[in-house]
Design a protein around this nucleic acid. Structure first.
Lengths: 152, 152
DNA sequence: TCCAATTCCGAGTAAATCAATCGAGATTTC
DNA sequence: GAAATCTCGATTGATTTACTCGGAATTGGA
């Protein structure tokens, strides 16, 4: 149950794009540098994010990436699901749904229902935070820093 | 963000023990058979669950495992954390907290805060379901089955 | 007292996944 | 046309996962 580097770097990258939303396409190299991620690796991730419809890309010189939707409309859950697959799937899940015979006893059904419910609620949690929220938080942090500076 | 076999099998095993709570120690072999898990593998998991204080074991003949607390007092989160480590840790988390220099910019702080908050809320979700709840669900499923049988 | 039923423990292993890296190509602006 | 970009697929080393195996220690009962 951990967030892998794909998820973490992806969120960092989209947060970066959120902070530059409206400024036109941002080249990947800039993002990679600011967020301290290998640009070759980030390339892979951006490919997945593009296919998931979270970013749009502009090729060629002066090209780059930008958010496909405003930061208010992209959630952490969107990013995680795009990069790490469905959230809180259980080990045998797809195997079991294929051969429907195994899901029959009330005990198994109860477990399946439990995982389904938990998965839904975890998704709700991850979808309750948008990129815009993270930007707000960063602004708040920055304001705190500044006021601290002022009082010295 | 998936639940590995450790988590899934562990929940199955403890659910099994919950259904036999109060009947004295249940041998691992029975659990493994009922829950369709390799007994050697389950042994490993039970070791971890014992060290986490979720089950107690009785060695020797007529021995086995039982829940250390009533099913109402053990959550899915307890099981997952015992078997898969802390929930929703992010990739670089421990590395970053060690060298405190990296966590400094308002942007990084905002991300750290975001992950912390999300992690806390995911834990709350996982802790909102107890083994007793799963047993209740199973009972409900069983009742539905029975009433279906009756109406044929 | 011995035996059968158990838990306990550590080592080993094949497969999958992860985290990158690399290189060659396609596209666009200047 | 040259430089700046994105695009795509292959490769690789490290780590994790999901087991398996063998044997030691413990206990209840015949």
């Amino acid at each position: 149950m951990r967030i892998s580097s794909r998820g973490e770097y992806g969120v960092r990258a989209l947060f970066d794009l959120a902070q530059h939303y409206g400024e036109g396409p941002i080249p990947l190299k800039q993002i990679a540098e600011r967020q301290d991620v290998s640009d070759h690796y980030l390339e892979q991730l951006m490919g997945a994010l593009r296919k998931a419809g979270l970013v749009v890309s502009v090729r060629g010189a002066q090209g780059g990436y930008e958010l496909a939707r405003p930061p208010e409309a992209i959630t952490i859950g969107d990013v995680i699901r795009a990069l790490e697959g469905p959230v809180l799937t259980v080990y045998g899940a797809q195997a079991e749904t294929e051969r429907a015979e195994t899901v029959d006893s009330p005990e198994r059904l109860a477990l399946v229902e439990t995982w389904k419910k938990l998965s839904q609620r975890v998704n709700e949690v991850l979808d309750s935070v948008t990129l815009a929220h993270v930007c707000d938080e960063a602004a708040r942090m920055k304001a705190r820093d500044d006021s601290f500076m002022y009082h010295i």
